[in-house]
Design a protein around this nucleic acid. Structure first.
Length: 482
RNA sequence: CGGGGCGUAGCGCAGCCUGGUUAGCGUGCCUGCCUUGGGAGCAGGAGGCCGGCGGUUCAAAUCCGCCCGCCCCGACCA
């Protein structure tokens, strides 16, 4: 069957949904707003998860697991926090047939439950820092859902740390933001802008929120990860207190940071094309698909050669899949694996075996390359690395080509409407002006970018805000967002 | 929550306006033959509470009412 994908240029949204469903990443379920992540999609998520988990551990964190339920009294302790999340919390009111004395929230995030536990763990400055991460599911009762991008239940990791000083917490916040950035660019081939969120956009209960912002190929922004400096807001409400070396009792300084299955949506929308997915080799469930081409007369010889190639590639550390089905034609398989975004296809038929070679076809460029069979181990890892690099550079070029600067509001409005993309523009720093711009253009401030030292960059002397005309504080990224 | 669209075979759809034999088409699935370097071909076969409930009628996939679900666009939203 020819699985038609709605052309990307015609209807990006329909294209996205078609790609997710037809490539077997995920599907809708009987539970509205919740998706089933199918094996191919879950394998992709596992690769993403493992690549990030490695980095989280390398930076000194340990994994743990905390309860799914949050008693209402705990969730309510931090006022801004509960106010921010109240509209999207799912509540458990009954245990069996009996109504509960206290409602239980299904975690929309775990600050409250984790802080209540940390208060027992922390006594002395010697207990600090606490550097813990958990991989979990959370529930947010969103009114509008999109596969991977915003689902009622989703999978994520959330890091929750406690520190002795404000400086140490800030250092941790930025460290993890930069881990996310390096991870997104290296593993997902997704270039991101690291920056600080405005007061209006920050996490409920945080002192400062930072994020990495990616540009999707329709020019809209996707918040791909966040890192929060929580200050002492939670430690004061949850009594996370330690006795310091100077004998004083002090509240800890905290951070939290997370990325979710939304990243899968980001990968799809960053790299995909008219033919479907294009997966970065480092996270692709299948890096190389081997398609044997045979007739009944030479079937055994070709399949045996193909199997040898597969075991050699596996031994070389390449995730190679051999599709030896004879129920589908080679042409059908070519199209199928292209749609599924497999970075490299390896064709091997009788003519190839005769010449001791095979055909390699790149998914990203559609280029075909002849390769001697003897050179596979030597060539393939490098070729996969090259595809990964090329994908990142291609995405970066797209992002840069669609990032524009202006200080003229009329031009700003026209760019947002006609070109989308990011617009770097001067802003006075007032929330009212931010909201006014959002109201007038649907564009939000994605972030205030950071310099190499992770400091905010002040606007040039004399620069004026694009909307208010008052002196500008920063040049900020505007975009319409998911 | 507002506006729009859609629920008929695993998937995608036609039929409905104008009620009437056994509800059809494509694809997928099963059997066999044949094929395999860009989504092959032939033959046979299985598969339906026509989203649910109620109403009108001699007769409802079709007309009417209510309900449920899903999708899209808004509004809302770390």
């Amino acid at each position: 069957m020819i699985k038609e994908i709605t052309p990307k240029s015609q209807d990006f949204s329909a294209w996205y949904t078609d790609v997710v469903r037809k490539t077997d990443l995920a599907d809708y379920t009987a539970m509205k707003g919740c998706m089933v992540i199918k094996p191919y999609g879950y394998a992709l998520w596992e690769n993403i998860r493992d690549a990030l988990d490695r980095r989280i551990k390398e930076t000194g964190h340990q994994n743990a697991y905390f309860p799914l339920f949050v008693p209402e009294s705990l969730l309510k302790k931090e006022a801004a926090h509960v106010e921010g999340f109240a509209p999207e919390v799912a509540w458990v009111t009954h245990g069996g047939n009996d109504e509960l004395e206290e409602r239980l929230a299904i975690r929309p995030t775990s600050e409250a439950i984790i802080c209540s536990i940390y208060s027992k763990w922390v006594q002395s400055y010697r207990d600090l820092p606490i550097l813990i991460n958990q991989w979990a599911n959370v529930v947010r009762w969103e009114k509008v859902t999109r596969l991977f991008l915003r689902t009622t239940e989703f999978l994520w990791q959330e890091g929750h740390t406690c520190h002795r000083t404000m400086e140490e917490a800030q250092e941790e916040t930025i460290k993890m933001l930069r881990v996310y950035q390096e991870f997104a660019e290296t593993e997902l081939a997704m270039p991101v802008i690291a920056g600080q969120k405005t007061e209006n956009e920050k996490f409920p209960g945080a002192l400062t929120t930072y994020s990495i912002e990616a540009m999707m190929s329709d020019g809209k922004a996707l918040q791909a990860g966040t890192s929060h400096n929580l200050g002492q807001h939670f430690s004061k409400m949850f009594d996370i207190i330690f006795e310091d070396e100077d004998h004083e009792r002090k509240h800890v300084w905290q951070t939290s940071w997370g990325v979710s299955t939304r990243l899968v949506g980001g990968v799809i929308m960053t790299h995909g094309d008219e033919n479907g997915l294009i997966l970065p080799p480092r996270i692709a469930p299948i890096q190389v698909v081997i398609v044997p081409i045979f007739k009944a007369s030479n079937r055994d010889a070709v399949l045996s050669a193909a199997a040898t190639v597969q075991s050699r590639l596996k031994a070389a550390g390449v995730r190679a899949h051999l599709d030896d089905r004879d129920t589908q034609t080679p042409g059908w398989k070519f199209n199928e694996y292209e749609m599924k975004g497999v970075p490299l296809r390896l064709e091997i038929g009788p003519k190839d075996i005769e010449k001791q070679q095979c055909v390699l076809a790149r998914r990203d460029t559609r280029e075909k390359i002849f390769c001697p069979l003897a050179a596979l181990e030597e060539r393939l890892p490098g070729l996969l690395a090259q595809i990964q690099t090329d994908m990142l550079e291609r995405a970066r070029k797209f992002r840069n080509d669609n990032t524009r600067k202006t200080s003229n509001y009329d031009e700003f409005m026209e760019l947002i409407e006609k070109e989308r993309g990011f617009i770097l523009a001067p802003w006075c720093g007032d929330t009212e002006i931010e909201l006014l711009i959002k109201d007038e253009t649907k564009a939000t401030i994605r972030c205030i970018p950071l310099d190499a030292a992770s400091e905010l960059i002040p606007a040039a002397e004399g620069a004026t805000c694009i909307r208010s005309g008052r002196p500008a504080k920063y040049n900020v990224y505007f975009a319409r967002a998911y």
